[in-house]
Design a protein around this nucleic acid. Structure first.
Lengths: 111, 111
DNA sequence: AATTAGTACTATGTGTTGCAAGGTACTAAA
DNA sequence: TTTAGTACCTTGCAACACATAGTACTAATT
């Protein structure tokens, strides 16, 4: 039996970084909020994936964060893009479009 | 220092399977030939990546192969899609378009 | 006939990543 | 004070791409 779920998961890899940076470029957000926004566009991500990724992006200087009190629970960690992050995001945008172009060319070739 | 090369490599992951199956749907091919075709569309893949992937696809029943003599070197292993492979490729096509759509939605959202 | 270059296939070890699973901590309502 | 809800964090595992090194076959050169 062949299962395409695994491959679909594989295809998602690598684009998460792009998506998270994109979401943050539209405004600061805390992890649970980011997961919600990704769900809206059918990109399901779980905590065990997101938290380590955010930490990695913070450690490489693409993100920073600030704590903010919440009226409905524990404090939230709002992440935001750094200047380096903004620049980097532009590069990733380009890479994404190049990839889409390359794959579509390969898929559609009928010669 | 931030390096987008790594992320670009990550984004390529997962779509390779789709690309290889697509190439084979256009006609049987041997590994070196597949690498050449991928290069044409700017998807650089090396042997250490391709051979294990082909073996995996063969073991899951998506591909088979036949040996064919060559006049300019050792015999070539021509890979071809099985019926299951053809069906599976259609699924992957869909998954790919869904992913592109989801990512583009996330990227382009400006609300 | 032996060596070299070119082509082709194969195997091993490593680093990165996504994810499942489990855990901690704060707030508010019952 | 217990329970439910929200939020953040850690650990261990499996899959994958890739670098590296190696084997084997053919043909041309010496």
């Amino acid at each position: 039996m062949v299962n395409s779920e695994n491959t679909k998961a594989q295809m998602r890899k690598g684009v998460l970084e792009l998506c998270i940076l994109s979401i943050l470029s539209q405004g600061d957000a805390y992890p649970t909020e980011i997961i919600e926004k990704l769900k809206e566009t059918k990109l399901v991500v779980v905590e065990g994936t997101l938290y380590p990724l955010l930490t990695r992006l913070k450690n490489t200087g693409l993100l920073t964060y600030r704590w903010e009190e919440s009226t409905s629970g524990p404090p939230r960690k709002y992440y935001m893009l750094t200047e380096i992050g903004v620049t980097y995001l532009k590069e990733l945008h380009l890479s994404w479009y190049e990839l889409v172009d390359a794959v579509n060319k390969t898929i559609n070739k009928q010669d």
